[in-house]
Design a protein around this nucleic acid. Structure first.
Lengths: 329, 329
DNA sequence: TCCCAAGATGGAAACGTTTCCAAGCGCCGT
DNA sequence: ACGGCGCTTGGAAACGTTTCCATCTTGGGA
């Protein structure tokens, strides 16, 4: 492999000049630049990344830290991030996390070892203070975390979203509403379901409707669990006419149960989800879109801005929510 | 940030010894090792990756090259890769590709610049010879490419898979079979649909059944296109009683059309897909599983083996296919 | 024609590891 | 008591860039 020294020799210049050409410095005469470029082409040279990184102290790498990478929503966010990073000079490295303790350790290592220039953290609450003492202004952008952070963030208003979905059902004539959601995760402490439920209750109260424990369920985050829950809820003689599922994946379980029970959607039971993952389109699920892909795109863009300008724009970006009307309400 | 020199000083040893401890060399006395470990802990030291990489000539990084990251199947493969890499000392870097020319260029750069120790290429045909002249034994593992490669690969038998799905329909009493698939991609030249169609025709011939052009369609890879195609196919007075969709995403479009037309699945029209992406479970689609996640896992494992042992196991791994019986046949 | 500022250029240090090689040390056998 | 061997250890070179700083050019104004 040719090195920068070979290029310098071939072009008849010093290595500093080659480096300047490589990095687009304007301090190089056009004729010299051309000679260097020719030499580079002749030798089929490309700079060694490890050396660049060591010398410049930058890694040209952005890390994405996400919970164990299995929910569709993370994947869609990742897609958005990938989209914008792909156009930049930064590499995208993926780190997946299995527990909150592991998260904190991982973050410290990533920052300490200088493995990445910046970190995008998806949906994972972490100790901000701990990190700040380590390196006060290490670039971190969070997505789907509390907006009260020291770091830039991209968020949605889950309470408003829950209310939005609920009101939509009410507007469509439903008066008996059920709720299906997962339980606050013991490992990661995701709390969006709680907040969506809060919105659900608010909207019910607002409309003078009753919140019934027996029409609601919270449990494991899986389609199967949601399916069984829906069975239980809908078997009651006095059953709800519509169900709000706190996430699309759960809504799929509900739909499955409804069909198994020989009822029709939306005539017998209406179902609305939350997230608008791609699969929601496949099954024609009416749901609340939270612009997942866009959230990733924005996060990546903010990271890039920060890295390039050195300036931090701390105000959180709050993404709008909207009902996607499809066939289940 | 403390460096290896600080650790050495604190522990009262030479930097070489610290390095040996860091890299688990057995040539260090236990008491010394302990002293070094203590110093590391005291200083909260972690080695600088860029320096390691430069000095050792390894990047501790594996690149995954995939087509523009939007089909569920790539994501699922990626999940498998992530799974196993996560347990290793290697980082996973994501590269997405928009065209075949870009692919070849990307590969050359990645290999030339020493940015990764190995590359896993998903579903993308590339010029093997070109790369081999560049660096003869650069570690590359391919997934879902032709098995005729010089490099280790993970593949499936699409022809057999097409036949498998078709025979399954026939066994369930269907005699009039339709086919919906995408057209060979102009950008990437994915050919699996063609091969699955070949299997379809083979199975038809084998069973003495007729292949009808008017029951078949090939076009754009999208749910919407598939939906429209299914409408056209099923509106004919003489319509097929079952449809084989070459990919699950297309099958979703077909299902949508069937429901829109007021017909029932599987009573009026049976549908079988191919791939078994996660969303297939959501909608209860009967399909051919090609073990997507597993394919990623195996590819990553083979890469790791290669990197660690230095030995290349060239025989392709062919994953089995199996029918996943759900509710649409 | 001369001088000076701004623009180009080159040399060398610095980045923080790994690893080669030489040397120190303790222990064993004779 | 001595020589030698093997296990430990340390110093220093090497990895290939970027960048500071000094030096050399060049062009324009007086």
């Amino acid at each position: 492999m040719p090195t920068i020294r070979d290029v310098a020799k071939r072009a008849g210049v010093g290595i500093a000049t080659v480096s300047r050409v490589l990095n687009g410095s304007s301090q190089v005469r056009e004729s010299t630049r051309q000679r260097v470029l020719d030499a580079i082409a002749d030798l089929n040279y490309s700079p060694n990344q490890a050396a660049r990184r060591l010398s410049s102290g930058k890694t040209f790498t952005i890390g994405v830290v996400s919970p164990f990478f299995t929910f569709p929503s993370f994947v869609e966010r990742l897609t958005g991030i990938q989209d914008v990073l792909d156009e930049s000079e930064y590499d995208l490295v993926l780190y997946s996390i299995r527990s909150t303790e592991q998260l904190q350790r991982r973050l410290r290592i990533l920052i300490g070892e200088n493995r990445v220039d910046g970190l995008i953290v998806l949906s994972l609450p972490f100790s901000e203070r701990d990190l700040r003492t380590l390196k006060p202004d290490f670039p971190i952008v969070t997505v789907d975390n509390s907006p009260a952070w020291h770091y830039p963030s991209v968020v949605i208003d889950d309470v408003a979203g829950g209310a939005l979905a609920t009101r939509y059902l009410i507007e469509h004539g439903h008066r008996a509403l059920g709720f299906v959601g997962d339980r606050t995760d013991s490992v990661f402490r995701f709390t969006s379901t709680e907040r969506r439920l809060e919105g659900f209750r608010n909207a019910l109260t607002e409309a003078g409707l009753e919140f019934r424990e027996t029409w609601c369920w919270q449990g494991e985050h899986s389609q199967e669990a949601a399916r069984q829950a829906a069975w239980r809820i809908l078997q009651q003689p006095n059953r709800p006419s519509a169900i709000f599922a706190a996430m699309d994946t759960l809504a799929f379980g509900v739909l499955q149960a409804v069909r198994e029970m020989g009822m029709r959607v939306p005539e017998d039971v209406a179902v609305i989800g939350f997230d608008d993952i791609a699969a929601a389109g496949y099954v024609n699920l009416t749901t609340v879109s939270q612009h997942l892909v866009e959230s990733g795109r924005i996060a990546a863009q903010r990271m890039l801005d920060w890295l390039r300008s050195g300036e931090i724009e701390r105000t959180p970006v709050q993404l709008p929510l909207k009902i996607v009307e499809r066939a289940t309400v």
